[in-house]
Amino acid sequence: VFVDDHLLEKVLELNAKGEKRLIKTWSRRSTIVPEMVGHTIAVYNGKQHVPVYITENMVGHKLGEFAP
């Protein structure tokens, strides 16, 4: 499973602090992992960042699938 390192670091850091804030990313190719559930990730679609709230059903899919 591929997840960009910088994105995973941000998610794990927020989980350690117990925070839930918006994470901006250009990494549409990253796979959604269970650690991301409950976070809102702003995924770049080529024009703007689209906020995507991550749920359990999204695990295993790519971030780009949810930012048309």
Rank of each mutant, 00 (worst) to 15 (best):
L7E: 01
Y53G: 10
L12E: 06
V59I: 14
M36E: 00
P51G: 07
Y44T: 05
V59D: 03
V52I: 14
V11M: 03
E9Y: 11
P68V: 10
H49F: 13
G18N: 10
E13Q: 11
A42R: 03
D5T: 15
E35G: 07
T25L: 01
A16K: 12
K47Q: 09
Y44F: 12
R28K: 06
A67S: 14
N45K: 07
K62N: 08
G18A: 07
F66C: 06
R29Y: 13
E9L: 14
E13M: 07
P34Q: 12
K10T: 15
V52M: 07
G46V: 04
V59F: 14
G46K: 09
P68R: 11
G64R: 12
R21G: 13
M36I: 02
N45M: 05
G46F: 11
K17E: 06
V50G: 03
V33F: 05
T25Q: 01
T40W: 09
K20D: 03
N15R: 03
Q48G: 11
A42W: 04
E65P: 05
E65W: 09
I41R: 00
N57W: 13
V52R: 05
E35R: 04
P51K: 13
E13S: 09
S30I: 02
V52S: 04
N15Q: 03
V37N: 08
F66P: 01
V50D: 10
K10G: 05
S27L: 05
L7T: 01
G38N: 09
V3L: 04
V37T: 12
M58S: 07
L7Q: 00
P34H: 11
A16N: 10
K10I: 15
F66W: 09
K10D: 07
G64A: 10
L7H: 00
V37S: 08
E56L: 13
L63P: 00
E65G: 09
F2K: 05
E19T: 08
V43W: 02
V11L: 06
Y53C: 12
Y53M: 11
F66Q: 06
R28P: 03
N45V: 06
L7K: 00
V59K: 09
R29S: 07
K17N: 09
L12T: 08
T31V: 11
L14Y: 07
T40P: 01
W26P: 05
F2A: 06
S27W: 07
R28T: 06
A16E: 10
H49Q: 04
G64C: 13
A67P: 04
E13C: 14
M36V: 01
S30C: 07
I32G: 00
A42K: 04
K47A: 11
G60F: 15
R29L: 12
V37W: 07
A67C: 07
Q48S: 13
F66M: 08
R29C: 15
P68G: 10
V50N: 12
K47T: 11
A67Y: 03
K20H: 10
G60L: 12
I32Y: 00
H49G: 06
L14F: 06
L8Y: 11
V43C: 06
T25Y: 02
V52H: 03
L14N: 04
V37R: 11
D5L: 15
L14I: 03
G60M: 15
H6G: 10
L14R: 02
T55N: 10
L63E: 00
H6K: 14
E9F: 13
E35V: 15
E35A: 14
I54N: 00
I41K: 00
S27M: 06
V37P: 01
I32W: 00
H61A: 11
E19R: 07
Y53W: 09
M58H: 14
I41H: 00
L63I: 06
T31S: 10
